[in-house]
Amino acid sequence: MAAKAQAEQAEKADQGDQAQAGEGVKITARGVNVWYGENHAIRDVNVDIDDKTVTAFIGPSGCGKSTFLRCLNRMNDTIEICRVEGRIEMDGQDIYAPEVDPVLLRARVGMVFQKPNPFPKSIYENVAYGPRIHGLAKNRAELDGIVEKSLRRAALWDEVKDRLSAPGTGLSGGQQQRLCIARAIATSPEVLLMDEPASALDPIATAQIEELIDELRAKFAVVIVTHSMQQAARVSQKTAFFHLGELVEYGETGQIFTNPRDPRTESYITGRIG
């Protein structure tokens, strides 16, 4: 409880008033197609991702939701046989333009993966790494500040503040995932992509991550890929349903889960064979 109150205070100090959901469009995707070799993985996807909003991508395995997520910070660039067509803009700027440095883009669009993957380094170094390589801190004191702020925002500070030099890999699964979130937000990104961030965690750690996602929404656009429809329902304001590489339906989460427009969405979220 005390930890949360403190974290909240820290939030308020550097954030001003809490931002509301749905403050304009952050990312625009138009006519996006992705191929893995011959396999047409994403088919003509158009979507507007809102700022300061949690957007959930749901759909059966192999529907393309993770592939599309990875387009948003050009993670697919690292896969040789992968070809991306169409236009993806962040704040009106084409993120696939030749002058865009993917490394800098990924500092603006952070990512958290399914399995917590802390570096085999200290807790402090895990968080300090990004800000250091991007030159975000002038001196040690500033870096200390960023590390503390990021750990607080990831709701981990009170659990680790006395052992910052202990290895990050020694934390519990849930703590490791929050450490990875702290690492992802240490570079002050604008968008946070999360690929199944809680699927390897127990229910309590999952609830903590979900609570954290809801808090992060005040600061970032969050896009989460999840297999758990209940998780999508719990944490997101917008939901996109992918099926066979197509974006079948995209809308307000409450609407998707009470009254989906497309029968394929209905079949999927009600657990019918589809």
């Binding site: 209905e266 019918r272 064979i273």
Partner: peptide, 11 residues
Amino acid sequence: MPDRHILRAFD
């Protein structure tokens, strides 16, 4: 839409 759930007990 198919009218059967994957989980039959639900039906």
